[in-house]
Every structure is written in C-alpha cells, then in structure tokens.
Amino acid sequence: MGGLLQALVGVSEKAAEIARLCRREDPLFQLLVAEKTGADRNRRFLQDFKTLADVLIQEVIKHDLGKEFPELQGHIHGEESNEFRDVQGGTVAVRVCATPRDTVALLLSVLGPEQAAAELLADAVHRDVTLQDEALAGVEPPVSPQDLAVWIDPIDSTNEYIGGREDVPPVDGIAPAGLCSALVLIGAFDRRSGCPVLGVINEPFFRRDPRTRRWQGRYHWGVAHGDTRLCSLSPPPARAVPRVVLSRAEGPAVRGALGPLCGGRPHFAAGAGYKMLCVILGL
C-alpha cells in the first residue's frame, strides 16, 4: 500500500507538470481546447470545456498506475472521455503510446503542425518522477492494490484552468475563483464497499517562484483504512463560528439553509476539490 500511495502522489506530480506546461504555451493552450457536447456536457454550466491536458493527464495516470500495479488494470476510472477533436474535425483517442516518438505522432493528429509542442508534451508524459518525501516514504498501511479501484479528476475546476485568472484576491484566505482552484484529484476506494481508502490533492498552481516566475505546486495526501488515519496535514484548529464555502451557482434555498451555520456570511469558491481543500486546510 505504501508503494501505491507513493505512486499516486508521483503521478499527481507528473499530472501537475503537464497542466503547468499547457498553461505556459498560451497559443497552444487555445488550440487544445475543445467544447464538451452531448453526454460529456456539464449540465451545471452554460459552457464547459475539455482540454488536452485533462485527457492526457487522465491517460498518463491510467498508464503509469496500470504498468506499476497490473492488478489495478480495468479498475482505474476517470472523469473524462479520452476522445479529442483532431485537426480534421474528427476524433482521436488520446493515450500514452509505447515510445515518446509514437506519443508525438498521436499528439500531432490533434496539434497539427505543432511539432515542438507535441514533443514537449510527450517528453513530460514519458519522464520519470522522483519524489523526495521522507514522511511519505515511511507510510505503509496494510491494504492490497488488488482490493482497490482508482478514480481520477484530472483537472478539477476546468473553467478556472482555462480562464487562467491570477488576479482574484482571496476573501478571508479563500479564493473565490481563479487558477489556484484548478486541482488534480486522485482517490482510491475499496472495490467491494466503495469506501474511500486514500486520496491525493495536488495544487499545480500554488504559487509562483519569485525568481523564475514559474508556477510551483504542492500536494496533500490522506489514508483511511480500518483503524488507520494518516494525513500529510495536521488537523486545523476549530473555529468558534464555522465557515460555509459554496458555489455561486447555488440557489436561494441552499444559501438560506446553510447561512445560519456561518452567521449569515457564506464564502464562495469554484471547484468541488478546492472547496474540500478549504475544509482540510481549515481556511
């Protein structure tokens, strides 16, 4: 289990780097966006998007975990369809190929003449990630990967990721919107009971390096199995008045029901994952 948890964190770090890579190439990023339609459309929003980063991250996680833990193959599921619009207007199934060259060729069917961009993405996909985390290395709860399944939300809060806003000031430490709410979420659950066993939240856009101005990320992990309760974070202190974090899309009934719990001052944020992170961090 310790190996699986470390692998989940490792693939989340690779996923975060792919997300940052796509944001760095802004003209490329615009090219990579395809609107969700039909069964893939999110009913909650007027316009929702599927990005190549979304699909590629999901397929990288499936590929890397399935390769390291064959007993997980067929039990790794994700938020996104892996079909992407190609340059001719058709569809291509995005996946990780056997070699970087083959992955480049597949990506070019989406990117058209963007050879350099395809090579950058393929390099990130096939690059090994080494974790330098002594605390994580010592975590080995007694559960087997063959009892688990995995769920992936490759980039939660996709609209905020696409918008890329960095100028949204926090309100009492909580960002109402913006790039910081775009997270990589990976969870493992018991195949029989459906109960969550472990999870990873990765923040690809936690802060900018003051010298290079490149984005830096961070991750958090947790384990809940039997009597084992482990987390990379300490429990936050209790608040005299609880905070409630909602989506701005919530209607009057929900706001009215939850408002009294927080003294009538709810906070607002984008993305289910970011809202959960606000709770975990005690913001």
Rank of each mutant, 00 (worst) to 15 (best):
M1I: 02
G2K: 04
L5D: 00
V9N: 04
G10F: 06
K14R: 15
K14C: 05
A15Y: 03
E25G: 01
D26G: 06
L28K: 07
L28I: 10
F29L: 11
E35I: 09
K36Q: 15
T37D: 14
N42H: 01
R43I: 12
R44D: 12
F45N: 13
Q47C: 12
D48A: 14
F49Q: 07
F49D: 08
K50L: 10
L52N: 00
V60W: 00
D64E: 13
Q73D: 11
Q73M: 13
Q73H: 11
H75K: 04
G78W: 06
E80V: 10
N82F: 04
F84D: 00
R85K: 11
V87F: 00
Q88C: 14
G90S: 11
V96G: 02
P100V: 07
R101H: 14
R101V: 09
A105G: 12
L106E: 06
L107T: 05
L107R: 00
L108W: 02
L111I: 06
A116R: 13
E119R: 09
L120I: 11
A122V: 02
A124S: 15
D128V: 08
V129W: 06
L131A: 07
Q132V: 06
E134M: 08
A137V: 04
V139T: 04
V143F: 14
S144E: 15
Q146C: 12
D147R: 15
A149R: 15
I152N: 02
P154A: 01
I155W: 07
S157F: 09
Y161G: 05
G164H: 05
D167E: 13
D167Y: 12
V168N: 08
V171R: 01
V171I: 13
G173K: 00
A175G: 00
G178P: 02
G178H: 02
C180V: 12
S181H: 02
A182T: 10
A182Q: 00
I186M: 09
G187F: 03
F189H: 06
F189K: 13
R191W: 09
R191P: 09
R191H: 07
R192D: 04
S193P: 01
G194H: 05
G194F: 10
G194N: 03
C195M: 13
C195D: 13
V197L: 12
V197S: 05
L198F: 12
G199F: 03
N202L: 11
N202E: 12
E203P: 03
P204H: 00
P204R: 03
P204C: 14
F206H: 15
R207H: 03
R211T: 10
R211I: 09
R213I: 05
R214H: 08
Q216Y: 04
Q216F: 02
Q216H: 10
H220Q: 13
V223W: 01
A224K: 09
H225S: 13
H225F: 14
T228S: 14
R229Y: 02
P235C: 11
P235Y: 12
A238M: 08
A240I: 04
V241A: 01
P242W: 01
R243K: 10
V244A: 07
V245I: 15
S247L: 09
P252H: 03
A253I: 05
V254Q: 03
V254M: 08
G256D: 09
A257G: 10
A257V: 09
L258I: 00
L258N: 04
G259D: 04
L261I: 14
C262A: 10
C262E: 04
A270W: 08
K275D: 04
K275C: 00
C278Y: 05
C278G: 15
I280N: 08
